[in-house]
Design a protein around this nucleic acid. Structure first.
Lengths: 201, 201
DNA sequence: TGCTATAGAACGAATGTTCGTTCTAGTCAT
DNA sequence: ATGACTAGAACGAACATTCGTTCTATAGCA
């Protein structure tokens, strides 16, 4: 019984990848509980034995998938925060990234943003307290400190700034919005920024 | 085999209510798939036979619960739209209602707003195309037509206006926000309104 | 008032199925 | 030939659902 730790060498295993890709598709399309191990076997072409060898149990698949996607998203946000100095630019880049990512990898985005992980990963902290979401709050706090955004509760301002765009992402993932998200970027960003920008600047 | 249609006379049956209340609590706390019929039996004090007599199957419970809550929410929003003439007042009243409702009936609010109904009610339309959400979009469309809000895509403006407050509701339901939602009302509303109001007025 | 008939509601043991998981056997690279 | 990996049959628990029954209440009739 080797271990299903999210080791980087194991993460690169092609078998692991095939399983994670299949699981992402199935979990996103029909949900974790509607997805049976045999489904993952069929879709991935990996046998039951291999799956249990690599992931330990069904939760282990979801856990690895979640960690994988969270890491990718956090890396992207970290790069944004590192390259851009001002809070406004950071926030805009984050929204742009979310919009592009939702088009490029809708399944991954749906699994990250509109899944109740607690129902099948009871030990994971809620996504709102994960690193990517902490970064969003940090951007807002810095924006307030720098005088780019008006003063107020960071949580409320973060909700006001990112709530609209995140809502659009959800609508698009639910196939309610007809056009690709980036075509809404300018309008959505203008509205979002109006909600928080410092007018006394 | 009598029928579990959402008849109003049946809806008032105390047995039905007990089951729906128990189901709401369990579905909200641990999710639909983590809730077994025996759990509902224990919590409601109603027997398996009775449950199947009234609801037909497990989905039927969720379906009845969903319809019940949707009807309540739509009634509240309809009353708001009927009593208040201007779009701004309507939108503010809607946000106020959502905030109060999330404190008064957190389980019901969580079941309505942060549950992936499609996973266990595959035939129901997504919540975004339900009557309450249509009313929110209507408010925005009227706001644009009346010149209260600036021009733009109604979907984007609706997301900008209600996205922030809805995000706060979600944070509060996930126990991330420390204080009751109504204490954030003024600040959240000011930010939300800034995002959409017509500055050329 | 009593007796019978009928209907719907409530009950829970029994059923058949599905699912996650285990186990044993086999493969392949080193 | 050893250890990492793959394979899929077999297992047992848990689940939604069924079904035969009992309980309760109302109605019809004398």
């Amino acid at each position: 019984m080797s271990h299903p730790v999210p080791d980087l060498t194991q993460a690169a295993s092609p078998t692991r990848r095939r399983v994670l890709d299949a699981a992402l598709a199935l979990f996103s399309e029909q949900g974790y509980f509607n997805t049976a191990i045999p489904h993952i076997v069929k879709r991935s072409g990996v046998s039951i034995g291999s799956i249990y060898h690599h992931f330990g149990d069904k939760q282990g698949i979801a856990r690895a998938l979640y960690a994988d996607l969270l890491e990718g998203m956090d890396g992207a946000l970290a790069a944004i925060c590192h390259q851009i100095p001002d809070a406004r630019g950071q926030a805009l880049a984050v929204v742009e990234y979310l919009f592009e990512q939702a088009e490029r990898a809708p399944l991954a985005t749906a699994f990250m943003l509109s899944t109740r992980h607690r129902e099948f990963l009871p030990d994971e902290p809620p996504i709102c307290s994960s690193q990517p979401f902490n970064r969003m709050r940090d951007i807002v706090s810095r924006g307030i400190a720098r005088g780019e955004m008006h003063d107020g509760d960071p949580a409320v301002l973060a909700a006001a700034l990112f709530g609209g765009p995140l809502r659009l992402v959800q609508l698009r993932l639910d196939h309610i919005l007809p056009r690709p998200l980036p075509t809404y970027l300018v309008e959505a960003w203008e509205a979002a920024w109006l909600a928080v920008c410092n007018t006394r600047g």
